[in-house]
Design a protein around this nucleic acid. Sequence first.
DNA 1: ATAGGGTTAG
Length: 682
Amino acid sequence: MASGVHPDHNVFPSVLKSSTLSVDLRFGESVHACIVRLGFHLDLYTNNALMNMYAKFQSLDMSMRDEFYGLEVSGGHKIYVHEVLDGIPERNGDGQAKSVLVSCNEPNTDYRKHRFEESVLGSGDNVNLHSVELPCSDGARHVDEGSCAKTNNGRRLQMDSVRKVFEQMPTRDLVSWNTVIVGFARSGLFEEALKMVREMRNANLKPDSFTLSSVLPIFAEYVDVIKGKEIHGYAIRHGLDTDLFIGSSLIDMYAKCTRVEDSHRVFGLLPRRDVISWNSIIAGCVQNGMFDEGLKFFRQMLLAKIKPRHVSFSSIMPACSHMTTLHLGKQLHGYIIRNGYDDNVFIASSLVDMYAKCGNIRIARCIFDKMELHDMVSWTSIIMGHALHGYALDAISLFEQMEKEGVKANSVAFVAALTACSHAGLIDKAWSYFNSMTRNYGIVPGLEHYTAVADLLGRAGKLEEAYEFISSMHIRPTGSIWSTLLSACRVHKNVELAEKVAEKIFMTDPDNIGAYILLTNVYSAAHRWKDAVRLRIHMRNKGLKKTPACSWIEIKNTVHAFAAGDESHPCYDKINEALNVLLERMEQEGYVPETKEVLHDVEEEQKKYLLHYHSERLAIAFGIISTPDGTTIRVIKNLRVCGDCHTAIKFISKIVHREIIVRDNSRFHHFKNGKCSCGDYW
DNA sequence: ATAGGGTTAG
């Protein structure tokens, strides 16, 4: 097997590259031992490759494994490392590697494992790997999960090895510095990385495109656009600003600093664009809530004949989640399956979220259950999905299952758990999560946690408690959290508190239309017509216009939108007819319209009419007449589903024997046989 | 021998 040729300095960089890809630290360490034994530990290229190997071990994750099948060694062979049997060498030590099981692919030969005594490179003799011939099949693949150091400790440990190698090098070039810098940057040791950049300049070496594209992600993470711009300026002065790698880091950095316009500028100035530059701009748009823009870039990328990658899909999918465009999400899902991307954790999580947000929690659960590996994000997505659909108990048991499987909840997971409680009125459970989060997990509650708890207290009618809770937050309450309480004041008809809360909102946001409308409704419900009118006039004088309630339903890839009393739909006559039949049946079943809160200056019959022609009812009626029996009806409403609306849909679901799913802003209500998944917690 | 982009948040 060994030719006996002495290895030259080209051998180890090649072997080390292979061990880097093998995801096997122990194998790499045995190679390191050989390097020392054969006296190559002073060779510049060998050391650079060695540092790269140690640096890579800490950043390899599951998703990267999809991208390699074997290790290319020069000569066209692929080596598969199966097992290190014993004798793990000391780092930087004198090499006591005993034996390694490897196999190698070569066409038309059978699968066999080869056992090497002493070390992978032979029995202490000088062996040139170029000439090693190892017949076997291409099916072999070794993945050692244990050597995937993903924890911080693991990362720091690997970086210690990199540092040790670096320090004992007699000479260092730009590549050496860049390798150390990227190693620190990727292990989250940002300050160390930046320190190395300064030291490198002290050593009279100029940062190049490798350095800059490794350092830029740090400022993206720090959200430090000033430092990021400094790098951008340096790049321009050195003619590096049109470099593909720097370009995509710049696009990403500006986007993460919420400066998407600057991302656009950089993207526009690139002379050439690859998948990653496209992905950067797409992700940048989506992360900043510019969903249409992101989709536009996604389509342009396809038109430019750039084949999307894993990242492209996990970047664009949230756009479908946020816009609730199920048909688009399904198209993307189709593409994902056809290209075999569906086993990627990022993509699967984004799909789970998309289906849940688009109203199909069953498919979301299906995808989740099929995943081989659940990380914290996929757990959080499915928990949040159940929470938003009102299935609080499922959400809670999923949360417990997650903990049992050793996945530790982070602050987002707690938002999901608290949201589940708030949607189902589980006050005690919510407090236990809230307290455990702060006491046992050391998580400082953020606005989202406070909002979920305040929302829950409000929905449950504990208005004063909610007020005290919001007032005692350690961060400044926002208009949106007060709005939650204002909305609860409307439901529970508490005028005094509503005025107090509205005052809080107007202090920071005097033009908050939603708050005006809610307060008007509170006055109307309490028959304080004069106050209601006064407020309406005030709004008119300020030029504030109420945005009308609107509901929409997606049928066969077309979105049909309805506003209250909207007669413009081509099927209006049929919808009208269906609604009349429905109303009759509903009243037979005992439905009594709750007309009190509607405009006081309208005749009683007119009130009933207005109520009945609410946007969501138009949309549901259209769904009923245009889809076959038994089809679930999914409708989206841009106002909270509460009060009369909630009651009416319960009746409708009983009469038509269908499941009706209504989404208001972000929550789903499943109506079936006259019941709602979230009880009466609106 | 070294570099860039991704999923969850009422």
